[in-house]
Design a protein around this nucleic acid. Structure first.
Lengths: 222, 222
DNA sequence: GCTGCTTTGTGAACCGACGCACAAGCTTCT
DNA sequence: AGAAGCTTGTGCGTCGGTTCACAAAGCAGC
């Protein structure tokens, strides 16, 4: 029902790519139809929640049968705007940045990496994957020429904010920040933060502690 | 007030490491006392929410003054169980796994990487950072000898579940999964999933779309 | 065509999280 | 000592998300 006017709740949006990935697996296995309960099991979520999530993008299931895998994939892809490729730039080619640049998973899923940037003289000019690292000073022209809208920030923490400001003024409207610091973005720019060390610290809370701890805090799923 | 019996809500736990990181910055700048409003600004959250989060671990602020930076850091560290180091193993030394293994941020924050595992003959035996990659078959003995409780999974998706099962049976109780697939863990094992391509897909939803879209969905912070 | 089985889509209750707003409490100045 | 000014800690209303449970709807077999 909700196709045009209303928004999809943020919590649902965050799960749609997960469903899409599960659907890809099913399609690879030659499955043509899937029920909400089966798909929910694969995604590790509640079946009712999954159905409600999918209902936000229309009624594409068949009662008594389930969802047609290729059709549902197409609907989710459309809703997420994955119909066309979205070029991505990477800023900061340290260990993590280089790994991300060489990581094939992005290109496979419609996010080809088209340019790499750094400021270190010993990094600018080297080849990572099949791209040569450009100097960050050239970011405006390169972003414009490729029509890139998404930036992956893998720069040091103390440079992350200025890098973010620079790429957004160059036309970037989506920022995925791996630097271990909070960055601010203006309106009209989407932002997600991924902090690897933070994840370990969160996990650590759920470790059983020696000193007279309750053992009732041993669950966590994300 | 809530120190022993009651739990800290999961949403609060997930933010405590963030506060801790901001406090580290403040301490590095020589700041000895901080108000909730200032700390909230640094962390990018609401001040009342921050105070409520901190209240879950006791009353460590002084009204009219604020929080003493070193003391608050210590309390958060204690609550998260960061008093002692927690050794970590990395399974899967592809691009991402190698970058994570060389990433200094883990060791700095109390999570020294003590062992690396893979199954590929051309990877086992190589040196990454200052560790040599062991064969995954030896995981039980190595985990036991180091007392490691946390595993970072950077293996291919189709191996992630079996790797997870193996490391948990070897004694691992915290799993940080980077493989692009949902893994299941038994009770008593904490799990967090990080999927890089997923993040880009989520971001993509908030991109302005061409076809007669509302421009009211342009915000997102995490 | 009708009955029974299966599964979707959703109303509604429930639950947790968020943020406002204010009382309690500490500090400083007079 | 008393008053004024901050800042914490928290009660409470609100909002969004999750889950249950069921009606609506399609399919299969008789």
């Amino acid at each position: 029902m909700a196709d045009d006017g209303s928004q999809v709740p943020a919590a649902s949006v965050a799960r749609l790519p997960l469903y899409l990935r599960c659907l890809e697996e099913l399609r690879a296995d030659g499955v043509s139809t899937v029920s909400s309960s089966r798909l929910a099991e694969l995604a590790g979520v509640n079946a009712a929640k999954l159905r409600k999530d999918l209902s936000h993008l229309g009624s594409y299931g068949t009662r008594g049968v389930g969802y047609e895998v290729p059709n549902l994939m197409h609907q989710i892809q459309h809703q997420l705007g994955l119909d066309q490729q979205s070029p991505v730039i990477v800023v900061g080619l340290g260990n993590l940045g280089q790994a991300l640049a060489k990581h094939g998973g992005f290109g496979e899923r419609g996010f080809p990496i088209v340019a790499l940037f750094d400021v270190q003289p010993d990094v600018v000019g080297i080849t990572v994957g099949d791209l040569t690292v450009s100097h960050f000073d050239d970011v405006d022209a390169v972003v414009a020429s490729h029509g890139a809208r998404t930036a992956i920030i893998a720069a040091p923490a103390d440079a992350a904010q200025s890098v973010t400001d620079r790429v957004t003024s160059a036309g970037i409207t989506s920022v995925l920040n791996f630097a271990p610091t909070v960055v601010q973005v203006g309106v009209g720019v989407a932002l997600r933060q991924v902090d690897l060390a933070l994840e370990l610290q969160i996990l650590n809370y759920y470790q059983p502690r020696s000193e007279s701890e309750r053992d009732t805090k041993l669950r966590l799923s994300v």
